[in-house]
């Protein structure tokens, strides 16, 4: 459980947006103001932690033993969508303050490649020798070998830090866009093209981390 390695790679080397290209739609859409960017980032982080905590056990103890791994897309997405809807209602009821700053982004979070992306990354299977979590379960008389690349603790931890990496990138872009959106550039370059070019420079910066990491 190399914690430092996970933290460094999740935040910088394999940053969820700039290195793995997942979760770009909110990255471009919600980063007009740092305030809304922070709200979106924290909402994504919260949902990522819950997703990892829920989808990891479902995959290892339900889908793999029963041999229905092909259902993983539909089960994950159903669970994520419902969890987000529940989270939204709970937040609205018990913490309206938090809801007003975080809650409005939750429906945005479900249709977001980042969440299913992290669910896929976390439930990666690997050859038995280098598995961090290996077990054999006897199901309906058949012994089924499970060998997962990450243990449960690592899964939740990497979910958390992938979320924080996401938040880091989106806040950086929001900060940059404060200035960039007001540059006096040619009319067609305004808006998304300029944001893309800012993101391009950020990707270059983060690429260096992947060389060290």
């Amino acid at each position: 459980m190399d914690v430092l390695g996970i933290i460094f790679s999740a935040l910088f080397a394999n940053n969820f947006i700039l290195a793995q290209f997942k979760g770009i739609c909110p990255f471009l859409g919600v980063s007009q103001k740092p305030g809304s960017a922070l709200g979106m980032g924290l909402a994504v982080t919260a949902v990522m932690v819950i997703t990892c905590a829920v989808t990891y056990p479902i995959y290892t103890f339900v889908l793999v033993p029963l041999g229905i791994k092909y259902l993983y897309i539909i089960v994950f997405i159903l669970v994520i969508a419902s969890l987000v809807q529940m989270l939204e209602m709970i937040l609205k009821k018990f913490t309206p303050g938090l809801y007003s700053s975080l809650g409005i982004y939750l429906p945005l979070v479900t249709t977001n490649c980042a969440i299913l992306g992290v669910a896929q990354l976390v439930t990666a299977e690997v050859a038995a020798t280098s598995a961090h979590f290996a077990k054999t379960l006897v199901v309906f008389g058949k012994a089924v070998k499970i060998s997962m690349a990450m243990s449960f603790g690592e899964a939740v931890l990497s979910g958390l830090f992938y979320g924080l990496g996401f938040t880091l990138a989106i806040i950086l872009l929001a900060g940059l866009r404060q200035k960039v959106d007001r540059l006096n550039v040619a009319k067609p370059m305004r808006g998304f093209p300029m944001t893309m070019i800012t993101a391009c420079f950020m990707a270059m910066a983060f690429y260096i981390f992947s060389l060290i990491g």
Partner: peptide, 18 residues
């Protein structure tokens, strides 16, 4: 059958929770 059971189970669970 197992797949159906799982799907129905999760669907039911999620709908009820919501």
């Amino acid at each position: 059958g197992i797949a159906l059971a799982i799907m129905v189970g999760i669907g039911l669970l999620m709908a009820l929770c919501i």
